[in-house]
Amino acid sequence: MVAVSSFPARAVVDLAAIRANVRSLAAHAPTAQVMAVVKADGYGHGLLPTAAAAVAGGATWLGAAQVEEALALRRGGVVGPRVLTWLYAPGAPLRDAVEADVDVSVSARWALDELAAAARAAGRPARAHLKVDTGLSRNGLTPADLAAILPEVLRLRAEGAVEVVGLWSHFAFADEPEHPTVVRQGEVFAEALRTVEGAGVVLEVRHLANSAATLTTPSAHYDLVRPGVAVYGLSPVPQLGASEDFGLVPAMTLEAELANVKAVPGGSGVSYAHQYVTSRDTVLGLVPLGYADGIPRHASGTVERPGGPVRVGDRTVGVAGRVCMDQVVLDLGPGATEREGDRVELFGTGRDGGPTAQDWAESAGTISYEIVTRIGARVPRVHVDSEVVAP
């Protein structure tokens, strides 16, 4: 057990797992470079440590949704790989991004105009990736808007303000590789490539594949794949295979110490609204984590349907009753011998039969992405390296 503060819980992140996951993803897409997506504080795992681990594992690009995330990478000393940022509103610090050698996505004409202005102010050309909306109807240029913007792209290239180095898009149903929209979006993307390249734009990279497509759709690999959740060892297609089926290892283990252990009689109501009532004399254990720390309230439990799974010793029990802001209760069972201070594991690799982030996702009716990214800021991240052996 690793302790770095008085907070009685921690998210332990194995950097060796991240390195190994990137190597495994590269093997799934041998013709492409790997962009490790480290947005949202490295999917809750810690931005800078996970970015460094991903690069050590072979990632030559990093993806950061927000401009400030990309700038934090550069300020944190991440200078080797290319960095792409793509989500911003008018007035974003694009000059800072250009000066920091960050590639910037363009999803609208106004964004192209602001990026050109930023490049002029910085005194150097901006590296742009045009994003085309191939059917997600979220961010990006429609095919018609893409064609309309190309004359200005060529003018800005001639001016020396903006150089378009990439074209990209994002799938709506990549986690269902047989869905007809996957094929259709691929066709729209291919047509967009023909439009852009036919106008004389020479692209460095074409990229379409997220985690799911990296693992299941080789036709989408192009020059660069953009895995996100798979970098952290979570399967993006749990209905098709668990992490280990794709050579991935979950990097985060969420653990805590029991803060209180006590015997209660049968018929005791547990937690708010007493939606859990003990069916016999038993022992309850208190875990000092709650929805303020990212534990889903939807993973609350009843006697008939135990809540989110927690590993206690060599057994797994479910949350008993409502998840509270700062704590959850476990029914440890009659005769339980656990004591205050004993370690429990909410999720981890699953290798020892313990719960995983995917198990929590299923308990709460969500996806594993949400489970790891919602872990609260007051929960310390402890970065370890299972490949490093202490002397």
Rank of each mutant, 00 (worst) to 15 (best):
E68L: 14
A174L: 14
T142W: 07
G57C: 05
A54T: 04
G42K: 05
F173I: 12
V83Q: 02
V287Q: 00
V344G: 06
V225K: 08
P218S: 05
V328Q: 11
R95I: 07
V310H: 00
A158E: 11
R127C: 10
A320S: 13
P306W: 00
D342L: 08
I367V: 15
E338M: 04
E178N: 13
D223R: 11
V237D: 01
V37A: 01
P151F: 07
A230N: 03
G166I: 03
L25C: 04
A36H: 09
P391D: 12
F189G: 09
L346T: 12
A199I: 05
L248T: 07
G308T: 00
I375D: 05
S105A: 15
A117I: 06
V67D: 06
Y276M: 03
A364E: 02
H129L: 10
S6C: 12
T85G: 07
P218A: 05
D245C: 04
R194F: 07
A263F: 14
A292I: 10
V205Y: 13
E362Q: 15
A230P: 03
G46C: 02
V264E: 05
D223F: 12
G140I: 04
A220P: 08
D175N: 15
D385S: 12
L193D: 05
V317A: 07
T373D: 10
V384Y: 08
R311G: 08
G318W: 00
G313K: 01
D14K: 00
A119C: 06
D96H: 13
A299P: 02
E178V: 14
A126Q: 04
D352H: 13
Q327E: 14
M35S: 10
A29D: 01
E340K: 15
R226W: 05
R74W: 04
P306H: 04
A299V: 00
L62K: 01
A161E: 10
H207I: 01
G46D: 02
Q33L: 11
A147I: 06
P81F: 10
L15D: 02
D133M: 10
F173G: 09
R351T: 15
T366E: 10
T217I: 14
A11V: 03
V38C: 09
G57R: 02
S24C: 08
V328E: 12
G77I: 03
L330W: 01
G313V: 02
T85E: 08
R23V: 10
T134C: 13
V201M: 00
R109S: 12
A100K: 02
V249D: 12
V201E: 03
G57D: 01
V102K: 02
L254P: 03
A121L: 10
A128T: 01
G46N: 06
Y222T: 02
G77Q: 03
V201P: 00
F347N: 01
V231Y: 06
M1C: 15
T282I: 08
V231N: 02
D314H: 14
G233S: 10
R322I: 13
S243M: 08
Q185R: 08
M1L: 13
T349V: 11
C324M: 14
A70V: 07
V164E: 10
L289C: 08
C324R: 15
P250A: 00
T181F: 11
A199K: 03
